[in-house]
């Protein structure tokens, strides 16, 4: 299944929304910069920068990639660590 709209139609519809969202991000970073104190070592800021990098790379799964950046790691032997039996 695909989106019924063409790429130019999507851009026409969403250009101002995208512009506004980028502007909000820019203003948030300005606010952080203006405020007193230091957050340079805060791991959340690293995640934000990592996510921003994803946006610049051509791909059709950028939303998924950004979600994974902000997600805890999944460990597939968690049941052993919890001492929980698997299988019925």
């Amino acid at each position: 299944m695909s989106i019924p709209m063409t790429a130019p139609e999507v851009l026409d519809r969403e250009f101002l929304e995208i512009r506004a969202k980028v502007l909000e991000l820019a203003a948030s970073f300005d606010r952080l910069h203006r405020a007193e104190g230091v957050v340079a070592g805060d791991p959340r800021l690293s995640l934000i920068h990592e996510a921003l990098d994803v946006l610049q790379v051509e791909a059709d799964d950028r939303a998924e990639q950004v979600q994974l950046i902000f997600s805890l790691h999944y460990d597939d032997d968690w049941q052993q660590k919890f001492d929980m039996a698997s299988g019925q």
Binding site: S71, H73, D76
Partner: peptide, 13 residues
């Protein structure tokens, strides 16, 4: 949020 991916995989397991 951050717990969703890990928790969903655990639930599916």
């Amino acid at each position: 949020l951050a717990d969703k991916y890990q928790g969903t995989r655990m639930i599916l397991d």
